[in-house]
Design a protein around this nucleic acid. Sequence first.
DNA 1: TGCTTGTCGACAAGCATTGTCGTTAGTGTG
DNA 2: CACACTAACGACAATGCTTGTCGACAAGCA
Lengths: 141, 141
Amino acid sequence: MKSSEALTTIFREQGLRVTPQRQEIFRLLDGDDSHPTVESLFDRARAHMATISLKTVYQTVHDLEALGEVRVLDLGTGSVRVDPNVEDDHHHLLCTACGLVRDLPVELDGLHVPIRYRRDFTVDDVQVIFRGRCDHCSDRV
Amino acid sequence: MKSSEALTTIFREQGLRVTPQRQEIFRLLDGDDSHPTVESLFDRARAHMATISLKTVYQTVHDLEALGEVRVLDLGTGSVRVDPNVEDDHHHLLCTACGLVRDLPVELDGLHVPIRYRRDFTVDDVQVIFRGRCDHCSDRV
DNA sequence: TGCTTGTCGACAAGCATTGTCGTTAGTGTG
DNA sequence: CACACTAACGACAATGCTTGTCGACAAGCA
Ligand SMILES: [Mn+2]
Ligand SMILES: [Mn+2]
Ligand SMILES: [Zn+2]
Ligand SMILES: [Zn+2]
């Protein structure tokens, strides 16, 4: 994801308005590798702006997604996760105990559909989810 | 998934009751590789049993899942898919246009977390989703 | 047959997300 | 800086999928 300043320019170029709410979300997402839910973004934004609405956070996230500045991941955890890292191709480790999502910055070799199964299907995208337990949750029996 | 007759025995052994509703669901799932949603199972069951409820279908699917007889997949399509194929390790192709889910009966080589990223994480399971377009949806521009 | 208890279906509620809408405020222009 | 245009705002209700509640029922067993 680009910087808050760069996003301001991009949004204006697209005819989208840059509001204090949106700038707050830009700042929160910049450099965040925690893959937050929209709700948790909302909570953090609300700490600074008491009146911001959940709807606004959803809308801004969707706008960022449409511009290719974030990726919205559905990892089957109930709510979607926002991933500002669109620069590096990567997959994810998901702790099924605490919900932690960690990047796996690796191009997995051999990850393609064998020819005999690729027939009659055009693959656009591959998503790999490694489920397990993070170190913190492994300790707890 | 085992046959309807075998499931009847297993359910009784577990203290679960075998009702006409459950047997209908056993029959519908046996050999079905379409990865139906619970709702679509409900619709098909209702064609034979007018009064069966959606709740009952959910409950039976969860019981089958607890016994390891089906897998419940969340592919990010809104509703979960029921997969009676628990015998063969496989992944999935998902058509993002029509929702079709096709098995990819392949152990993908090289699909493991590189050692330096595996540290501090215990992997239990890997899910791979290839998203794209099926032949039918590729034709339609 | 009769008892016990898991299951049934109707209904309402839960959760994440989106639609509606009247009001507010960002933006480019002059 | 004032203006006009219109996107975005927040409050609220609604959606879609799934689960909880509960009284009635019936499967299984003796
Ligand atoms: Mn990521
Ligand atoms: Mn399958
Ligand atoms: Zn954890
Ligand atoms: Zn298709």
